[in-house]
Simulated assay, not measured.
Amino acid sequence: MVPGSESLPSAAPERRAPRISYRHEALAAVLAETGTLAALGFGTGAPLHDDPRYLAVPLEGMEAPTPLEVWQVDGEVESGREGPLRWSAGAGWLFAAIELDEGEYGGPRDAAETAYRRLREFIAHRPEHHVQRIWNYLGAINQGEDDAERYKLFCEGRAAGMGAFFREGFPAATAIGHHAGEQRLQVYLLACDQPGRRVENPRQVSAWRYPRQYGRTPPSFARAMSLPGQDVLAISGTAAVVGHSSAHEDDLDAQLAETLANLETLLAHAGMPSGFDTHSPLKGYVRHPADAPRVLDFLAARLPGVPVLLLHGDVCRRELLVEIDGWRYA
């Protein structure tokens, strides 16, 4: 042994990012597989199961049957519950989720503050405390005017619940409105025992720097996160926003084209190859179900072979008709 080497920190193990896939398989079979970190079902047809690794998301799929979204890691997975919070962990990765009834907390602001505080307190004591990616689903996201809009109140509560936890930078995130009743708030995340690298889009103002017109508290997220290992990009909810302004109001095709331009810019800024492939699943959220066939046709033409899970969800700005998030594997 080299003198003094016993005090040298050991090199962090290389982390392979979770593999994300959409699968038309029985939930029980998916949960029985070694390495299943999380499984997500969608809409009223989602299966029922009490495994902490499973979460039923209140967004309806635009194609039937709607597949499961499955996260898998290289290793054994443990899981548990702490009150309304469920979690699972394995191979240096953590899935955590919380669902709250807003009616028990006085509305979207206080429910969001409670959800984020509970998640923060839980994660702070875990080795997997580097949050990479967060999803937020709340009902009636555009209800209310000016600073009383529910999404803006959610942003205030989220910031209060975060406290200084993300003082070194925000994770990637999505916030979408569901139609399963405005009282249901759902937040889930992916974290790791190693930090990722935040990626911004030079075509867009960073969300936390939005001007006052977007609320007393700006949204708190990075446009994307390059996961540990730098071989996977976790992409935040992306829409037709240029600078800080929404583009192409009421023009679905133009919004889709602008959204893809933003996605390509993110890939380039992250140092990743252009385009998406069959191993890079995307999730789309469409405001009007009647627009779903056009969205699917557009994406099939522009992104042939790319797995796309299209869901009925409201984008956080009323004028935006569609949003896309997902994963880009190198």
Rank of each mutant, 00 (worst) to 15 (best):
W135L: 03
V131G: 12
Y137T: 15
L119V: 02
A180M: 02
M162G: 01
L119G: 05
R184W: 11
Q143W: 08
L119R: 03
F122A: 10
R118L: 15
R120G: 07
R197W: 11
Q132F: 02
R184T: 06
F170V: 01
A140T: 06
G163F: 12
L153P: 04
E182Y: 00
H178L: 08
L190I: 12
E182G: 00
H179I: 02
R167V: 02
A180V: 02
E121D: 15
A148L: 13
G139P: 11
G169D: 04
A164L: 06
I141D: 09
F166M: 05
N136G: 00
G161V: 05
Y151W: 14
R120I: 08
M162Q: 13
L185S: 05
A124T: 04
A164R: 06
Y151D: 13
G163Y: 09
H129S: 10
V131M: 09
G196I: 08
A140G: 13
G169C: 03
E145W: 08
G144L: 04
D146Q: 12
C192N: 08
F170S: 01
L190E: 13
A164G: 06
C192R: 01
W135D: 05
A164P: 03
E121W: 10
N136I: 01
L190Q: 11
R158D: 06
E145A: 14
R133N: 04
R167C: 01
E182C: 00
Q194V: 02
C155D: 12
F170Q: 08
Y151G: 12
N142D: 13
L153V: 01
G163V: 07
D146R: 11
R167E: 09
A124D: 06
G169R: 01
D146A: 15
E145M: 09
I134F: 05
H129V: 00
A160G: 08
C192Q: 02
E121N: 14
L189S: 02
Q186L: 15
N142H: 10
R150M: 09
H130E: 14
N136T: 02
E145R: 13
Y188P: 00
F170K: 03
H130L: 02
A191F: 10
H125F: 05
P171R: 10
F122K: 08
D193F: 04
Q143E: 14
R120C: 05
D147S: 14
V131D: 10
A164S: 12
C192A: 15
E145S: 11
I141V: 15
M162R: 05
D147F: 13
L189P: 02
C192V: 01
F165D: 10
L190C: 10
Q186F: 03
Q194F: 03
A160R: 14
H179L: 07
Q183Y: 01
G139E: 11
F165V: 11
E128R: 05
L190W: 12
G139C: 12
D193G: 12
H129R: 13
E182L: 03
A160C: 07
F166S: 07
I134V: 15
H130D: 13
E121L: 15
G169N: 01
L138D: 04
A124R: 04
E182I: 00
A172V: 04
G157D: 08
D146M: 09
E156F: 05
H179E: 11
L190D: 07
P127V: 07
R184E: 06
A164T: 09
E156R: 14
A175W: 00
Q183D: 10
R126T: 03
